[in-house]
Design a protein around this nucleic acid. Structure first.
Lengths: 167, 167
DNA sequence: TTGGAATGTCAACAAGGCTGACATAAACTG
DNA sequence: CAGTTTATGTCAGCCTTGTTGACATTCCAA
């Protein structure tokens, strides 16, 4: 019964439960590869994946507020605060009180922060580049289409906003 | 300089650093969506994502040994053991001593385990199905090609082996 | 001037990674 | 066949990173 739809008129083989399960497992294994290289670099320092994410998005949107970062990362302020505190203490991130609204803290990478960001994203991009090159442009377009459709709609908007601010 | 390769003869626009970074962020946001529905179901019970993964792969390969599961999941035996113990105590998983090699334990879902597996995978497949349907078959093929290329080669083999054992 | 929003801090806790120490069964070796 | 090694699984304890709740501070805005 589960695969009954395959027998319908259209070519919907790609929607069988077996295909969906393969997609699920592909996501699982691929995400492991996706995070493997930065994780390796970070364990040598005293940092983890949470630090990488913070550094990535501060680099992506310099001057972002803590609250904005919270929305992007989808964690609690207490959790983010612990990460930010160590990054600021270690001189990788600078926090500046806002001029218009002095409640806000605007976050920037220091030179050391940029260096680490570069190191991490170089590693991650290298893997992504190899995967993209092996797969070819059409596959890459499909990859992005499916991923975008898999996001919660709120995150879809965040993603699009970031994308458009970039290039 | 970073995007200099875009000027080369071929159409390699999809390999610019900006495109790679968008791919990275797409993975990040999409993975959040990917795990959101099962996570919601699991927090109502006393389980987490680790339990879901164990249940998924025991269902996928009934009778699998602990060691085999360890390789698939990429965690330590101690970490997996904690999860398996609670699943066995709660009557979702059964562990049988091997007949040929009595050191091994073979793992099976009970009826209750199957019920939970069904509930979790229904939710996850529903999202995947919607994404696949929105994206269309060509995009889905590309999605899988890129994900496969992003895996560590060892996981690529594991993934392929699972895939071929399935359908 | 008072209420609400943004930020930060402290404390306590849970999930799920990790390492180290160890028990047992099986397999190998002299 | 006794002794050693290997494979497997378990227990105890630690770390990161997520969570809630309570609360202080600062400032904007009605």
């Amino acid at each position: 019964m589960a695969d009954g739809r395959a027998a319908s008129g259209e070519n919907l083989l790609y929607l069988t439960d077996e295909q969906l399960r393969q997609g699920i497992e592909a996501m699982f294994f691929a995400y492991r590869g996706f995070t493997a290289d930065p994780d390796r670099i970070l364990t040598d320092m005293a940092y983890g994946r949470a630090h990488h994410r913070a550094i990535h998005f501060i680099n992506r949107a310099p001057g972002t507020t803590v609250n904005n970062l919270l929305n992007i990362l989808g964690v609690t302020k207490q959790s983010l605060n612990r990460v930010l505190r160590t990054l600021i203490e270690d001189g990788l991130v600078e926090s500046h009180v806002g001029t218009a609204d002095k409640r806000e803290r605007h976050l920037y990478l220091t030179e050391a922060g940029h260096a680490l960001e570069q190191q991490l994203s170089d590693a991650q991009r290298a893997r992504m580049r190899a995967a993209f090159r092996d797969a070819g442009p059409d596959a890459v377009a499909g990859f992005r289409t499916v991923l975008e459709a898999m996001m919660d709609s709120e995150m879809q908007r965040t993603y699009t906003r970031l994308k458009e601010s970039g290039a």
